[in-house]
């Protein structure tokens, strides 16, 4: 019976694994992960920009890889590990990337910052000492309208150096 319900639904009870904690939610299936994070889970660190896959500000990690949460249905990622910017710090200890961004001034308005931090985190996990070109490629889906990117790239290099 449960199987039948799960195969043809307009609303679903979903268990999402967000920042290491399981959360059970009843959501309409047409709500995007971005909307569910912000509106149903109050995790407003994930920003909404274009909502069309073009700006990257809604980036979250799914199984460690950057994804655009405005183009993901929660029902398609049940059981997978979702990380938002709220999950980057451990307790009161910021992620080295967050510290480096704050120190260098890599955020101006800050709207792109959560998405960029997560793209950078995924990059450093795969490649702890990336070249400048590799950093730029990893950020090629995250637009920033303020900084001109220079300080963002420098902050990622600083964090990578400290983590090595």
């Amino acid at each position: 019976m449960k199987e039948e319900i799960l195969r043809d639904v307009e609303r679903a009870v979903l268990t999402l694994n967000v920042n290491g904690e399981p959360a059970q939610l009843l959501v309409p299936v047409h709500k995007t992960l971005l909307e569910v994070l912000r509106e149903d889970m109050q995790l407003t660190g994930t920003k909404h920009g274009c909502e069309l896959g073009e700006c990257g500000t809604c980036t979250v990690l799914i199984d460690g890889k950057p994804h655009l949460s405005c183009l993901v249905l929660p029902i398609q990622v049940e059981g997978r590990a979702i990380t938002t910017v709220e999950g980057m710090a451990s307790g009161s200890d910021l992620d080295p990337l967050q510290t480096a961004f704050a120190e260098i001034g890599a955020a101006q308005c800050g709207y792109c910052t959560p998405g960029i931090l997560l793209s950078a985190r995924s990059l450093l996990e795969e490649n702890p000492r990336p070249s400048r070109g590799e950093i730029k490629e990893a950020l090629a889906g995250n637009l920033c309208r303020c900084t001109g990117y220079t300080k963002i790239v420098e902050a990622i290099e600083l964090a990578a150096g400290r983590m090595a």
Binding site: R7, P28, H30, T32, H48, E51, L73, I75
Partner: peptide
């Protein structure tokens, strides 16, 4: 916000 229309999801 630009939201998806209501739909059913079949698996």
């Amino acid at each position: 916000m630009l939201r998806l229309p209501r739909f059913k999801y079949l698996r």
